[in-house]
């Protein structure tokens, strides 16, 4: 489902004397349907960078990143938008929403944008929000004023609303209590069962051992230090 082929990446800091920092070289691996792969490596090894490159958030310098039939590393913006809408989901660590939009709509939005009927989308959103223990009194409010943990759970509910065939999870269990952590892990297991290809970053080792089928150490893709 996701196929990463010889991908490299460097950052050029024009405002610091055009310093070029190579951060990744020769990244190659595949993730099949129904499989969960955990990215590992020390902080700064490039786990999040790689994940953002797969999502098209960071530009790849060379190589191919296939998700289904789309090569994100060489695609037009509208192809990436279509891919993100229907195929590739991303649960980041931060919730970014339009102010004033009620939580229920924030969660239902990914479904509405793929053309799911309003009542079905809202039913699914309500189901996810109650599973993640967001009190019903908050559903009508914008999540911008919620606590960090609540925002994270709204973010997860939004990420799991649509059944994406491929998903990227950046620390989905961070800052969650035991009950909610359990819910998130079962959501991941359900997604695997329905055949989603998942790439995740989990600092929580027991969680990683439970849901991940394989681990890929990103340090293997770190370029040799020049200078």
């Amino acid at each position: 489902m996701i196929k990463i082929d010889n991908v490299s990446k460097s950052f050029t800091l024009h405002n610091q004397g055009a310093a070029v920092i190579p951060v990744m070289d020769g990244a190659t691996f595949e993730v099949g349907a129904g499989e969960c792969v955990a990215l590992t490596g020390n902080s700064g090894a490039g786990k999040s960078t790689l994940m953002r490159m797969i999502y098209g958030n960071y530009l790849s310098a060379s190589g191919h990143i296939w998700t289904g039939d789309t090569d994100v590393a060489n695609a037009e913006p509208r192809e990436i938008i279509a891919l993100r809408r229907a195929t590739l989901g991303y649960v980041s660590q931060f919730l970014r929403v339009v102010p004033r939009v009620p939580t229920l709509e924030v969660v239902a939005e990914p479904l509405l944008s793929v053309g799911v009927a309003k009542d079905v989308a809202f039913a699914r959103a309500r189901d996810l929000l109650s599973r993640l223990n967001i009190p019903e009194t908050l559903w009508g409010l914008s999540p911008t004023t919620f606590s960090g943990g609540e925002q994270q759970r709204v973010n997860i509910a939004r990420g799991f609303a649509h059944d994406y065939p491929a998903m990227l999870l950046d620390e989905p269990t961070a800052s969650l209590d035991a009950t909610n952590r359990e819910t998130v892990l079962s959501l991941i297991e359900e997604a695997k069962t329905r055949g989603a290809a998942i790439i995740g970053i989990f600092h929580d080792a027991p969680a990683r051992d439970r849901v991940a089928d394989r681990e890929i150490n990103v340090s293997a893709f770190t370029p040799a230090k020049v200078a």
Binding site: T12, L13, H14, N15, R52, G56, N57, Y58, L59, I80
Partner: peptide, 21 residues
């Protein structure tokens, strides 16, 4: 030019980097 979040999160041109920062 590019996808909005890509240009803002991984700007390539010197001027865009300055603008974003």
């Amino acid at each position: 030019t590019g996808l909005t979040d890509q240009v803002l999160d991984d700007p390539q041109h010197a001027y865009t980097q300055l603008l974003v920062s």
